[in-house]
Design a binder for these strands. Sequence first.
DNA 1: ATACTGTGTGTAACCGGTTACACATCAGAA
DNA 2: TTCTGATGTGTAACCGGTTACACACAGTAT
Lengths: 349, 349
Amino acid sequence: MFSMATIRDVAKQAGVSVATVSRVLNSNGYVNNETKKKVDEAIRQLNYKPNAVARSLYKKTSKTIGLIVPDIVNPFFPELARAVEDTAHKKGYNVFFCNTDENVEKEEHYLEILLQKYVDGVIVASNTLTAEKVKELNIPVVSIDRKITAEIPTVVVKNKEGAQKATSYLKEIGCERIAHLRGPHHIDNANERADGYLEEVGSAPWFQSSYIADGNYVMKTAIQATVELLERHPEIDGIFAANDVMAIGAVKAAHRIGKMVPEELAIIGFDGISMAEATTPELTTIAQPIYDMGTAVTDLLVKLIEKKPVERTFLELKVELIERESTRKQNNNKGGREHGAKDHSSRQY
Amino acid sequence: MFSMATIRDVAKQAGVSVATVSRVLNSNGYVNNETKKKVDEAIRQLNYKPNAVARSLYKKTSKTIGLIVPDIVNPFFPELARAVEDTAHKKGYNVFFCNTDENVEKEEHYLEILLQKYVDGVIVASNTLTAEKVKELNIPVVSIDRKITAEIPTVVVKNKEGAQKATSYLKEIGCERIAHLRGPHHIDNANERADGYLEEVGSAPWFQSSYIADGNYVMKTAIQATVELLERHPEIDGIFAANDVMAIGAVKAAHRIGKMVPEELAIIGFDGISMAEATTPELTTIAQPIYDMGTAVTDLLVKLIEKKPVERTFLELKVELIERESTRKQNNNKGGREHGAKDHSSRQY
DNA sequence: ATACTGTGTGTAACCGGTTACACATCAGAA
DNA sequence: TTCTGATGTGTAACCGGTTACACACAGTAT
């Protein structure tokens, strides 16, 4: 067993001081060209790699960020995590990966560990954190998908606008009784999406609040809720589900009851997760630019870390309607504009 | 802006030496109970948190591991990553998260960075790494899902056995012409699964090699391959796809052609990804114990890191047939035994 | 001749922990 | 009484980088 070469080994090998080696490594200060060659040669010979931990200790920065998500298994987060990691890597940062299950203690525990490990900043996808906690961390924290407070930089999407887009699209294709399968009341984006729905149909003559069913963003309960909804209101011919997972549940419920999708019932989701393409019929949805959100939030964090100027600390990204098979226009029946090919969509298992 | 308290601040505050504080922190060596109280009080007053970087530098260990996957977006990996992170966290380790897209240079680059950051070990899900490269890292490396070489500890599943199980299950429910949608030739598990299929039907009188179609583990090409397969051999009444994503593609192809699943064509996949439950009909599959694999591989790695004894360095886990709707028994028609409820299946978005 | 600036290099302190070693005290054994 | 071992604490070296500072020497301006 042998141990890694240190900067002192390199210095000895090259016949110079450690300061000079350090200067060569970081290309700062003055170094004679001949000296530099000797040092480079010594580095090559010893296969020297500088020790990032020692560097971190002195510089008080680790070129590392933390990514805190509720659960990577939740289909929204893999693409987000991918974008964060890609962007961080491009900028020279590594990412620590943490799952909190929306559990406050777990989250605070992770933050403490990350802080002790000198992370330069943290990306949080969670709603349990308080502004106070964040402030005492003394490092940049940005939030994705959930607003925490006005002080914390955030990247979200236009949830209300997207919900309006979804609902008005259902109207447009001829739906006359449109229901909403909403998300949990304690999650902001669920409320915003419900607001968007109400904005479009809340004052329609047929509307009643019983057209809104409570879901909690998971498939199983969405199936049950949809079955009850359709039993309560058999006249429903369109459902806007607040996320894709529930929309998939709604499709299953319709199938179970024997309602044809989209002929008798149009269903539209929200999120644009890849699972929505696995269903039959494939799901029409309001797609969030998940990858772009990850890129944007990471860019923002890195700028804050490196104290570069940032234009805005609150980004509200646009969503996009993707027409697939779970809805069909009354008049024309074309497949509809899809997403542009994503640069990372061709990967294989 | 204020800076973090150090061990020397604590020592001063408590009126003791840094060694004593360190002893209290790590509960080793002798410390008088009264002294310990003073130190604890000083720690509390200053809200002192030990600096993990400084500790790493001296101890040459960071309580950090690397997780290298091809692409977290690939539906197999989120659950694996979750298991790895859960297990690592439980044992006091943080995980660096890296996506390589099966790209050798990217992979080697990540390994180099991880090494410089003093990671204690690495989990690799990849087939591009050579044993030589791994050896010169001088830290424990374990492999998941892919065998690299005999020397590198590995956790895989019984692919051939699973494939046989899938194929014989199709025979059992009455299929008489069973095709195989295989994975890429350069991936071991694809070859093992093809072997398992051949073992079951390779010597059947009806068998021809044209019953095997090349797929590359992605949905789009699987759809095309299935369409061609069914045009070539309309008599096919069962398809074993080498992964779930291709099986979903096969379901779509059947739907497109107008073949009823499972009535006219039974389809079975492999992997047990959650997406397989989103389809209509829901997919019968050979489920890998993905979460367990992640737990096992992390346990193994941590044991190697901590130089604890390990029983075996090659684990081949069992797979399990999950009957759902895309296949149906000729005789009895019961829903079939599902997975036990996974402890992490109830999370919400 | 003097001062000044740019180039090139080395010494040693520093980052914030851990621990080897030295030393002191005290109880119980020989 | 002396020896031994357990208890308790402090000093300083160490981990492997970075950099402030000192210094030396050249070339050029005054």
